[in-house]
């Protein structure tokens, strides 16, 4: 493979096409795309949209693994399309389908409503306590306090973890990996006092206790958030809290 622009070598794609109202189910359509070693799947899709078929629909924005909008199943595995290099899928073909476990809006575009509603429900923002610092002051955190939640704050809401989660596949109610990891991110933030407002939901049967520690969420996470670890950590905390509340004769509060 020399200069990509002059090569005539191509790589095949099988891309799921689906137009609700017209198609009864998604079907795979074959496309050939010029092969460039520096291209990612998203580049190939943009090439197709510009040069071959303008109706091909997919989400993207940053092209650099930051915005989290380009998730899709690439050869059956949830991936960010902007981080999936063609050269890792030689000789092809590369199968691209919408993220599993979500309703499809069109082609590779999924419906996010369920996730957005669950995300709001766990209040992913800092809930100040009774005595927030004065408006002109700063919240100070030690490096250790920052380290306590930083990993969980790396989530870009790309939903790859929901596509990988067999529990979410079967149990629509399950809050899911990213939402639980984000709840943990705020629970562990020294500036936040909102734990008790979140735990009613996150420590319920639809929250952490639906998780059976399959761990696929952490395996596919492009940001190394480790949602499975976050959920395990929350299980320990919830269990300690349970024993404290039941065994401690005079209550905790």
């Amino acid at each position: 493979m020399t200069s990509g622009a002059t090569t005539t070598q191509t790589i095949g794609f099988e891309i799921a096409r689906y137009l609700p109202g017209e198609d009864r189910a998604p079907t795979l359509r074959h496309y050939d795309v010029p092969y460039r070693p520096e291209w990612v799947v998203l580049d190939a899709l943009n090439y197709l949209k510009d040069e071959v078929d303008g109706t091909l629909s997919f989400r993207w924005s940053c092209r650099m693994g930051v915005c989290g909008s380009c998730g899709a199943m690439v050869n059956g595995v949830p991936r960010l399309m902007c981080a999936a290099f063609l050269r890792d899928y030689l000789p092809g073909p590369i199968r691209v389908e919408p993220l599993a476990n979500f309703p499809i809006e069109r082609d590779l575009v999924i419906v996010l409503d369920d996730f957005m509603q669950k995300l709001r429900a766990v209040k992913p923002w800092i809930i100040p306590g009774d005595r927030p610092p004065p408006a002109d002051a700063e919240y100070r955190q030690t490096p250790a306090q920052l380290a306590d939640f930083k990993q969980y704050s790396m989530c870009i809401n790309c939903l790859l973890c929901y596509s990988a989660c067999p529990v979410y596949q079967h149990e629509e109610e399950f809050l899911g990996p990213a939402v639980l990891a984000l709840a943990q991110r705020y629970d562990h933030d020294s500036r936040d006092r909102g734990n008790s407002q979140r735990h009613e939901l996150t420590w319920s049967d639809e929250g952490i206790w639906d998780c059976t520690f399959v761990g696929e969420c952490s395996a596919v996470c492009p940001k190394h958030v480790d949602p499975a670890g976050a959920i395990q950590q929350a299980k320990v905390e919830s269990t300690m809290d349970w024993y404290r509340s039941v065994l401690w004769p005079f209550g905790r509060r």
Binding site: W203, K235, S238, D241
Partner: peptide, 12 residues
């Protein structure tokens, strides 16, 4: 708060 009984089973 609606308590899940899972902490008991999970800790065992």
């Amino acid at each position: 708060m609606r308590r899940s009984p899972e902490p008991v089973f999970w800790s065992l």
